[in-house]
């Protein structure tokens, strides 16, 4: 199944081929967790603070679904 992944801010250095806000299409087997997908993409676990699926926060052990819009997000804030 296929999902699309975005990374922002300081995490972009690990997927440098992506433009700002651009999604990477990834094929993953059914049952893949967000943590496994994170590792597959080479994103360091200690730099990922928030994971979003379709705009809602999920946990690393949750399972990816076909067609998910996924974002890995580092520590952010501002105002």
């Amino acid at each position: 199944m296929q999902v699309e992944v975005r990374v922002f801010a300081t995490l972009r250095r690990y997927l440098p081929e992506l433009g700002i806000g651009e999604a990477k299409k990834v094929e993953v087997p059914a049952g893949t967790t967000f943590a496994e997908l994170r590792d597959l993409l080479g994103l360091p676990a200690d730099e990922v603070k928030i994971i979003m699926r379709n705009g809602l926060q999920v946990e690393p052990e949750d399972v990816v679904q076909d067609g998910d819009r996924i974002a890995y997000i580092p520590a952010t804030g501002g105002g």
């Binding site: 975005r6 922002f8 801010a9 300081t10 700002i20 806000g21 928030i50 979003m52 705009g55 974002a71 997000i73 580092p74 520590a75 952010t76 804030g77 501002g78 105002g79």
Partner: peptide
């Protein structure tokens, strides 16, 4: 080199957008 230092407060633009 963290989020605020590297990108400023506008580091939030993509993230708040992602959150809807």
């Amino acid at each position: 080199g963290g989020g605020l230092n590297a990108y400023g407060t506008d580091v939030l633009m993509n993230i708040i957008n992602e959150a809807g």
